[in-house]
């Protein structure tokens, strides 16, 4: 099965100079835990609810702080025509629960989460992805990540 069959197409891009308040409101509205951050037609990062809590609220930043200051840089993505099982393996390796999905023209077309794989994919593959993701570490880990 292809990723385009299980991904969510309900994606909203947010700009790096928009505020934490705007990101939080968008997450709430979309019932999403992550937003792709785009600038000049390019993805420049991802911001998660945890990024806002740990790099924003815990650091005493106000709701007016910029997303650029809390987002996770370095984009990992998958293609919409990739196989679900292959992406599940990538998630395990990268230790991320969600990946932006792009088409072959490099346009963002969706987001795929571990939950999407769990409800629509195969149980063994979900289990494998979950196992990899649940090990300590990973891209959004906030204690070991060194930020420039």
């Amino acid at each position: 099965m292809q990723i385009s069959n299980v991904m969510s197409r309900n994606v909203q891009i947010i700009g790096p100079d928009q505020t934490l308040r705007e990101a939080a409101a968008a997450m709430k509205r979309l019932d999403a835990g992550v937003l792709p951050v785009g600038e000049n037609e390019k993805l420049v990062g991802m911001v998660t609810d945890r990024d806002i809590a740990i790099r924003g609220i815990a650091e005493g930043k106000s709701a007016d702080a910029k997303i650029r200051d809390v987002m996770t840089q370095g984009i990992r993505y998958c293609f919409e025509d990739e196989d679900v099982d292959h992406v599940a393996e990538n998630m395990a390796e990268l230790q991320v629960r969600r990946l932006p999905v792009i088409n072959r023209e490099k346009r963002l077309v969706g987001i795929v989460s571990l939950g999407d794989l769990a409800t629509q994919g195969s149980l063994p593959k979900t289990a494998k992805a979950l196992h990899g993701i649940s090990q300590p570490g990973g891209q959004h880990n906030q204690t070991t990540a060194v930020r420039a």
Binding site: A24, D49, R50, A53, I57
Partner: peptide, 17 residues
């Protein structure tokens, strides 16, 4: 949870301090 903080404070403009 971290998500509660974001949805119930940042989104609503409640001062976390």
């Amino acid at each position: 949870t971290d998500r509660d903080l974001v949805a119930r404070a940042t989104a609503r403009d409640a001062d976390p301090a």
